[in-house]
């Protein structure tokens, strides 16, 4: 069941991104999509609107970049609960640390190993 909702919710979030590009004739570029989805996820999460989606769809809500924003925002909230003001600064990045580190390490590694095909 969770696989089905993950497929549908994840797919629909991607469709929103596709429509944003197609219907603006690509004035919304890939960079805008990435930035926009992370920020939107963080805002929805802060308003308490994203957690229900995660409970419904699991990876369907966590794997899209809105989920990355959700993790950042929830991390900051959790940081405040445990560390107060320090958590405001540390909580978000702490929660996203694994993803960011993976992206930097694997990114650097593969960028050096492979030559672009063109």
């Amino acid at each position: 069941m969770i696989f089905l909702t993950a497929f549908i919710v994840g797919g629909l979030i991607c469709v929103v991104g596709q429509l944003l590009m197609d219907l603006t004739n690509y004035k919304v570029t890939l960079a805008h999509i990435l930035v926009g989805f992370v920020t939107t996820g963080a805002v929805l999460s802060a308003l308490g609107l994203y957690q229900p989606l995660v409970e419904l769809a699991g990876a369907g809500a966590l794997v899209p970049l809105t989920g990355f924003g959700h993790i950042l925002a929830q991390g900051a909230i959790r940081g405040v609960e445990t560390d107060g003001l320090l958590g405001v600064f540390a909580g978000g990045v702490e929660a996203a640390a694994a993803g960011v580190t993976a992206a930097v390490v694997f990114g650097y590694f593969f960028a050096i190993v492979f030559k672009p095909k063109g």
């Binding site: 590009m21 004739n25 672009p116 095909k117």
Partner: peptide
Amino acid sequence: RFPTEQGVQRS
């Protein structure tokens, strides 16, 4: 434009 390996759709 974009890097050649970037996952973009060309208009």
